[in-house]
Design a protein around this nucleic acid. Structure first.
Lengths: 229, 229
DNA sequence: GCAAAAGTGTTTCAGTTACACCCATGT
DNA sequence: ACATGGGTGTAACTGAAACACTTTTGC
């Protein structure tokens, strides 16, 4: 590799910020103020700066849009989009991320003045988005659904301390299924490193007090967390 | 996003070409002819051209180095490496790929005149490679090992027509385990879409003739293919 | 015949499912 | 008291592991 006559590109990080809010699986979209695609909805994103990695750029954008730092959420790379004509103005290679943030998220924590909206994922997928963002969104949603099976990513949708039923609801909403509460409880509590019990309980969901847990160090589940596999 | 004063970068595709050869899990490395890192081993790679995607660039490099087209192998994106100083000369953002090719691979099918070598993965990981290629190699190997569990990627290491025992040996070598031949046979033949039986058999491995199969359309396995999960 | 590899049968056993049931709170 | 959600017990079922055994070739 490495001989000079090679072209250069703008490199961008685009993020699909996902959350669970109001019992729905939602994505944060921005209404574009100027051409191209003025008035269309688009994913948040920004260009790579001189002193940062693409991961840093994604984290910076996430913070600007939501106020969440990487430690309070989960930021995963899901794809690279580099069709030569994907931006009509110039060559842009976008690295796409899925950010899983706790819900309900703050309405707005900073960033520029553009209109933003948390749309249910299914609606957003029907909407015509700017650039190739519909494709990116579809890939990121598929990635997130699959990763909930194999990894502990679901905890990123929960507040720092959460009950097992709250975690179960994440799976139920993202997968559009219903899970047996008792069996789910046993299954996840038995997996070592997934959940760390705290001493507290809560009654915020009504009924008998539920034990609160925090996310453990485990990243990959030893077996897929879906019924009837 | 999108205001002009953003820096541009060279974008490269680096590929970790993996195969099974001589009963070992091996990677293709190139000896660099010039500075920086002259004499060091490095991953094959090349810069993105004006009219191609990064995936195209990776496929082009794979073909130049091995003669394999994408259809005869499996090319998966595994990471993006963008530390500002990872190339001492200029800013380069590398998209890393793992290529799984059938073995034993052709010794050399084209490309430039540099020395190439198929090193056992464990040896290559100990070797000091050029740039951040040791890290890329480690990530790609981990990615490949994990993907053999969840996907049908293992068939990419086999010739077009292969026996179930040949497929089993792929798993045994990559995972450094031994698998029960009978149970493995039943397990993989029961998964719909994984293996397509042909009418032929072969005795190339000795013993009773073994049925030959080709890879089916399935990409993701319904359950992880590892013992004692 | 004998060795070697492919593939099948069978027992055992662990993990999951379905669902009944009990528990601890708020109102 | 009773409604509500949290959590446990348990019997039936399912599928994987272990391993013996049969099949079909080459020599």
């Amino acid at each position: 590799m490495v001989d000079d006559p090679a072209p250069t590109s703008y490199v961008a990080a685009d993020i699909v910020i996902l959350t669970i809010s109001g019992g729905e699986f939602r994505v944060l979209l921005i209404e574009r103020g100027k051409a191209p695609f003025a008035g269309r909805l688009a994913l948040p994103g920004g260009f790579l700066e001189d002193d940062e990695t693409v991961d840093d750029a994604a984290a910076r954008e996430l913070f600007e849009e939501t106020g969440f730092a990487v430690g309070e959420s989960l930021l995963e790379r899901v794809g690279v989009y580099s069709e030569p004509d994907r931006d009509p103005r110039r060559r842009v290679v976008s690295v796409a991320y899925a950010a899983l943030v706790p819900g309900p998220p703050p309405t707005r924590a900073g960033g520029d003045a553009a209109e933003t909206a948390w749309l249910p994922v299914d609606e957003a997928l029907k909407e015509p988005l700017a650039f190739d963002h519909s494709r990116i969104l579809g890939d990121a949603v598929a990635h997130a659904r699959r990763h909930l099976e194999y990894t502990t990513a679901a905890t990123a949708f929960c507040p720092k301390e959460f009950t097992i039923a709250e975690l179960r609801r994440v799976y139920e909403i993202v997968w559009r299924t219903s899970l047996d509460p008792g069996n789910f409880h046993r299954k996840v509590t038995r997996i070592e490193g997934f959940l760390v019990p705290t001493e507290e309980t809560t009654t915020r969901n009504g009924g008998r007090p539920a034990a609160l847990y925090t996310a453990g160090p485990l990243k990959w589940l030893p077996l897929p967390l879906s019924p009837a596999h």
